[in-house]
Computed example of a mutant assay.
Amino acid sequence: MKRLLLAAVLSLFAASTAAAQTVIVVRHAEKADASADPLLSEAGQARAQALAAQLTDAHPSVILTSPLQRTILTAAPTAAYHSVTSEAVPLNTGIQAHLAAIVAKVEAAPDDATILIVGHSNTVPLIARALGYAEAADMPECEYDRLTTLHLLGEGRAHAIVSRYGEPTTC
């Protein structure tokens, strides 16, 4: 009887986990310069390729970026590999509106979607928090290798796994 109960509980957990949205949040890769809308440096281009390699099995069906080149170019190899067109979410109405628009797009995606979001050092932690990962740490300007995977549980809650990808960054 205990085995049957345990099997039922595990199957319910597996079913609820499988149906949960997965959101992967990263910062754009390394910039070529300090201009307002720079391209990626060689290291940044390598990091964008590393992100695509890291996400080959993730199958993102939605890719959200800011309208700035560095986020679009970071997402580009992943988008090309999965034949997904990335969508730039406007920043010109302020960070709070940007966050609200991202959350709305995540909420509008199918329940079993995998979503890649490429943001900035000041938006990545805010996005993770807005999606239910209250403990998301602030991101220093020198950090490019953090990959936060959120499994959205509903009711503003998320289970998070923070990992690294590409060459380690040192701060």
Rank of each mutant, 00 (worst) to 15 (best):
S66Q: 11
T71G: 02
V103L: 01
E155F: 05
A136N: 03
E141C: 08
E87Q: 15
P67E: 15
V118C: 08
Y133M: 00
A137C: 02
T56V: 11
A108M: 09
P67T: 13
N92F: 06
D145N: 10
S121M: 11
H82G: 00
L91C: 09
A43I: 03
C171E: 15
I115Y: 05
Y144L: 06
R164S: 15
N92Q: 14
A52W: 02
L40E: 11
V162L: 00
D145A: 06
I161G: 07
D138C: 04
A134G: 04
Q49K: 14
H59E: 13
L12M: 14
T148D: 01
T78F: 03
A19M: 07
E167Q: 15
A76N: 01
P90E: 11
A128E: 12
F13R: 05
I72H: 10
A7Y: 08
E42T: 11
A76H: 09
L4M: 15
A19H: 12
P125W: 01
A34L: 12
P125Q: 06
I127E: 12
R146N: 08
H28E: 09
Y81D: 05
T65P: 14
L39C: 08
A34S: 14
T65D: 09
I95Q: 15
R70I: 02
D145R: 00
A128F: 03
L116K: 08
A100Y: 02
T93V: 04
Y165E: 08
I117Q: 06
A48K: 01
S61I: 13
D112R: 09
S61Y: 04
S35N: 11
D145C: 04
N92L: 09
T148Q: 04
A75N: 07
L6Q: 09
V9E: 03
V103M: 00
E155T: 06
A46Q: 15
R27E: 03
V103N: 09
F13L: 15
I63E: 06
V84P: 05
L51Q: 09
V25R: 04
L64F: 15
L147V: 06
H82L: 07
A46D: 12
H82S: 03
L150E: 02
A46E: 13
V84C: 06
A75G: 10
A14E: 00
Q54P: 05
Y144G: 04
T56H: 07
P110W: 05
T149G: 05
